[in-house]
Amino acid sequence: MKIEGRTFAISGGASGLGRALARSIVSSGGNVAILDLNPDVANPLIAELTPSRAIFIPCDVSSTDEIASAVSTIKEWISKTNYPLGGIIPAAGVGRPGLIIDKSLQPADMEGIDFLLSINLRGTLDLVRQLLPLVASTTPKDADGERGVVIMVASSAAFEGQMGQVAYAASKGAVASMTLPMARDLSRFGIRVVTIAPSMFDSAMTAVMPDKVRKGLEKAMEFPVRAGKPEEFASLAKQCIENPMLNGVVIRLDGATRMPSKL
């Protein structure tokens, strides 16, 4: 599918992996709708990409009502630009480590678990389901009848979650596991589904990691021995958009990293 002439909605698009992808899409001739909570980061990005090519929509993906409002804004915007919605990229995510039960025999805080799941899992699924009608109602532009693509973001924790990552691994494992059934649901509409599962990448989430944790993670890396760059994620996501044979698959982007049980 060609990026040029289409709009792509990216949650968490103001920073990190989503920000890099937004830049890549605009440079390839597409428009981006950036759903995020941080106007201080989003507004300078919109100015960089130019307001005619990008729009910032404040949105908490854990709120169904806020997503619905964002969908209405996107619908109005694409009607003005004549750039139909071609892609949905739910990249908003949080990490909140915590043992399922600690050494004092206190179970994990359910409020914290709900917060993480509401963004990483529920927010992903809710954003996708509400935006899909805008993609499914577009007119195909190629012989395959393709209308668009959904690119979800999992994590290496979906496969090798470490100690303290029960809730996080559950959220990302669920995203990975729903990739194929979602692709099967959407095949009749000419919509593909791909999930990218990165290891440690430079992002707002990893920026707050202590040096000890970061160095411990680096010991599990094969090559290259460093955190991934957002531009490397964006490069793969761009290929997921453009290559019609990528569908129903979870792609690990991890430099052969396999996480140990603990650091």
Results as ranks from 00 to 15, higher is better:
Met1Ile: 12
Lys2Asp: 14
Ile3Leu: 11
Gly5Phe: 05
Gly5Trp: 06
Arg6Met: 13
Ser15Asp: 08
Gly16Thr: 11
Gly16Ala: 10
Leu17Thr: 01
Ala20Arg: 06
Leu21His: 03
Ala22Arg: 04
Ser24His: 08
Ser28His: 07
Gly29Arg: 05
Asn31Asp: 02
Leu35His: 01
Leu37Glu: 04
Leu37His: 01
Asn38Gly: 10
Asn38Phe: 09
Asp40Glu: 11
Val41His: 15
Ile46Met: 11
Ser52Tyr: 04
Ala54Phe: 02
Pro58Glu: 06
Ser63Tyr: 00
Asp65Tyr: 00
Asp65His: 00
Asp65Phe: 00
Ile67Gly: 02
Ala68Lys: 14
Ala70Met: 08
Ile74Ser: 03
Lys80Asn: 11
Thr81Met: 06
Asn82Arg: 15
Pro84Gly: 02
Gly87Arg: 05
Ile88Ala: 10
Ile88Tyr: 00
Ile89Trp: 08
Ala91Tyr: 02
Gly93Asn: 09
Arg96Asp: 05
Arg96His: 15
Lys103Cys: 09
Gln106Leu: 13
Gly112Tyr: 08
Ile113Thr: 08
Leu116Thr: 04
Leu116Glu: 03
Thr124Gln: 04
Val128Thr: 12
Val128Tyr: 02
Val128Arg: 01
Arg129Ser: 02
Leu131Trp: 03
Leu134Glu: 09
Pro140Val: 09
Pro140Asp: 11
Lys141Pro: 05
Glu146Leu: 09
Gly148Glu: 06
Gly148Thr: 12
Val149Ser: 02
Val153Met: 04
Ser155Lys: 03
Ala157Val: 06
Gly164Phe: 05
Gln165Ser: 09
Tyr168Ile: 03
Ala174Lys: 05
Val175His: 05
Ala176Gly: 07
Ser177Thr: 01
Met178Gln: 00
Pro181Phe: 03
Asp185Trp: 11
Ser187Thr: 07
Arg188Phe: 02
Gly190His: 08
Asp202Gln: 09
Thr206His: 13
Ala207Phe: 04
Ala207Cys: 09
Asp211Arg: 12
Lys212Gly: 15
Phe223Glu: 07
Pro224Glu: 07
Val225Ala: 13
Gly228Tyr: 02
Phe233Met: 01
Cys240Thr: 03
Glu242Asn: 10
Pro244Ala: 12
Met245Leu: 15
Met259Ile: 01
Pro260Val: 04
